[in-house]
Simulated scan of single mutants.
Amino acid sequence: MRSLETLKELVATITDWKSLKKMVCKPFKPCILHLAISQHVTQLYSEEELVQLNNFRKLHSSVESKSKTKNTDQRVTGKRQIEGMPKEERPMPAVIKKPKKIILMQNNQTPDLPAEIKNRVTELNGHDIKFLMHKKLFCSDVKPNSNRLSMPINEIMCEFLTEAEIAKLDERDDTNGKGRLVGVEVTVLDPCMREFILPLKKWSMQRTDTYNLVKNWNSIVSANKFEEDQELQIWSFRVDNKLYLLLNKL
């Protein structure tokens, strides 16, 4: 179908409706196209045709209005019907599930540790080395009044705790189960291979549970001048059965 601009060009030389009549063989019948043209080139239509077009416009607007009202009434009626139903019989609303965060390693390979770090682990008779996660420090990880490093469990690449350690993370320091979490004592090696003793605790957050290194974390931040957006690799290993965490600064 030709555009309205094309039609305007075709009738540009016609200055009155009588001239147009001579070019039209069929009797006049109002339509959407005539409505559009009459908005811009009124002189192409007689008074009788303009009246017909005006009536057609009113009729068309009335049909559209009734259709919208009907759809609205149907939605309201449907909502009232659902609200009047017992809760157990109401249809479940559609739920849009958020895609799960998937962490992919390039070529599914564990990153390499620098030679000096491997040597330090060997000196400690360390074993069972595991890559846990790539951590980008947030503001809350380096703020002095927070004093903790968060490690969301859904971002950790593998299980690194024993069953006994997992159970201890849920223990509290009183018998009624409402006291402070006990946590698991961990030795942390900072990027300079200095040792710090910190408690590892599990906190239940809104989106996911997190492991947190607490209490002495500020000392590590200060000693290494960690800042927001600093990137770390976090590893675990064991000396005998004792848990160590290792921070590799990128």
Rank of each mutant, 00 (worst) to 15 (best):
M1G: 15
R2C: 00
L4I: 14
L7K: 06
V11N: 09
A12V: 12
A12L: 12
A12N: 10
A12R: 14
K18C: 01
K21R: 15
F28M: 07
F28S: 03
K29I: 13
C31N: 15
C31P: 01
L33I: 06
L33N: 08
V41H: 12
V41M: 14
L44H: 08
S46C: 14
S46P: 14
E48Q: 15
V51F: 12
V51E: 14
L53N: 06
N54P: 02
F56V: 02
K58A: 12
S62F: 13
E64L: 15
K68H: 13
N71E: 09
T72P: 00
T72R: 10
R75S: 10
T77M: 12
K79T: 12
K79A: 15
R80Q: 11
Q81N: 09
Q81A: 11
Q81F: 06
I82V: 15
P86G: 01
E88Q: 11
E89F: 06
M92L: 08
A94W: 01
K98C: 04
K101L: 13
K101A: 06
K101Q: 07
I102K: 13
M105G: 04
Q106G: 00
Q106S: 09
N108Q: 11
T110D: 10
P111R: 00
P114G: 07
A115I: 05
N119S: 11
V121M: 05
T122E: 12
L124E: 03
N125D: 05
N125A: 05
G126N: 07
F131D: 06
L132R: 09
K135A: 09
K136L: 07
S140F: 12
V142N: 10
N147M: 04
L149N: 09
S150A: 13
P152F: 03
E159Y: 00
T162N: 03
K168Y: 05
R172A: 02
D174W: 02
T175Q: 04
N176Y: 10
N176D: 15
V182F: 11
T187N: 05
V188T: 02
P191M: 11
M193R: 07
E195I: 00
L198Y: 03
P199I: 13
P199C: 10
R207D: 14
N212E: 14
W217R: 08
S222Y: 01
N224S: 01
K225H: 05
E228K: 14
E231D: 07
L232W: 03
I234N: 00
F237L: 09
F237N: 09
R238T: 05
N241F: 01
L243S: 05
Y244D: 04
L247M: 14
K249F: 06
K249L: 06
